[in-house]
């Protein structure tokens, strides 16, 4: 079996989810060709990557084309599939060979159910972050280009950066996430303080973002980032399906919430029933002491 793996890069290095995709391809026993495309500054990455991958896939006789299920990967996978007339699945959590085709599992209804999908022939699949361990070695990454880059009609007129630092939730080892229960922007800052002490990254639920306590690049959940850190500390997070589906792959979950019935406790390794605004400062003190 031949697999084409698109490696998405950030600041020149493969993102963590792309390393996980390599493991998915290895698990299929596939011969892997890893590729990446450089995107001209005034072009939309989706257009360039679609065109470049299609050109490579047409020549290469691949059985499967794999992407990380990022914003980019989930848009490009079906577009590539449309041009190759292959079956596509976004957000796969497992992929198995099945005769000449594949059997894929993906979450639906915000993760409360999973769907099994069969593809009889060639497949183009994006793999959800946290579904496989990251590959330890990366094969040589071949640079590919879009043959028709000049003809693509959509140009970027202006790029506007989001205020605040770049956030890399998917590759974070520790995430301290705040929800509605943090109550105010001022108290939400406790999450940042704890994250800083632990060398982690701040996550947030949709209500925390809608309240303006932190910007949307920190959102964890179905409409934000899908994460699977070693430790996830959920502060004042009730555990709405929308959020839990984005973090339930975490290896160790600590939850603090004053409502003992909160669904977040169903997935937590340690659940503390109590006032997050009193507990977080004590935790911060203890971790500071531990670190000397």
């Amino acid at each position: 079996m031949k697999a084409l793996v698109y490696i998405e890069k950030k600041d020149g290095s493969p993102i963590g989810t792309s390393l996980e995709v390599l493991t998915a391809a290895n698990a299929l026993g596939a011969d892997i060709t890893a590729v990446s495309a450089a995107v001209p500054a005034d072009c939309i990455d989706e257009d360039i990557v679609t065109s470049a991958v299609v050109a490579e896939a047409r020549d290469g006789g691949y059985d499967i084309v794999l992407f990380a299920a990022t914003t980019l990967g989930k848009i490009v996978a079906p577009r590539v599939a449309a041009r190759l007339l292959a079956g596509s699945v976004n957000d796969a959590i497992s992929i198995a060979a099945d005769g000449d085709g594949f059997c894929v599992i993906r979450p639906v209804y915000g993760g409360t159910a999973q769907e099994k999908i069969g593809i009889a022939g060639k497949a183009v699949i994006s793999v959800r972050s946290g579904s496989y361990e990251a590959a330890e070695s990366v094969p040589e990454i071949k640079e590919i280009t879009a043959p028709d880059a000049d003809e693509i009609g959509i140009k970027i007129l202006e790029a506007i950066a989001e205020a605040g630092e770049a956030v890399n939730l998917e590759d974070a080892n520790i995430i301290v996430a705040g929800g509605r229960g943090m109550g105010s922007e001022e108290d939400f800052a406790l999450c940042k303080e704890l994250a800083d002490i632990l060398g982690g990254v701040v996550g947030a639920t949709r209500p925390a973002i809608e309240n303006g306590w932190i910007n949307r690049t920190h959102q964890v959940g179905q409409s934000g980032k899908i994460v699977a850190p070693s430790v996830y500390i959920a502060c004042g997070v009730s555990g709405a399906t929308q959020h839990v589906s984005g973090m339930s792959g975490s290896k160790y979950i600590i939850a603090i919430n004053k409502d003992e019935e909160a669904p977040i406790f169903d997935v937590a390794d340690i659940g503390i029933v109590g006032d997050v605004k009193k507990i977080l400062p004590l935790m911060i003190e203890e971790f500071k002491k531990k670190q000397g």
């Binding site: 079956g87 596509s88 599992i105 979450p107 639906v108 099994k116 593809i119 009889a120 659940g271």
Partner: peptide
């Protein structure tokens, strides 16, 4: 191009302490 084969429950995470 793809066939829907049915549904399954996601694996349950054990609640801890």
């Amino acid at each position: 191009l793809v066939k829907y084969l049915g549904y399954q429950e996601p694996p349950k995470r054990e609640a801890g302490v």
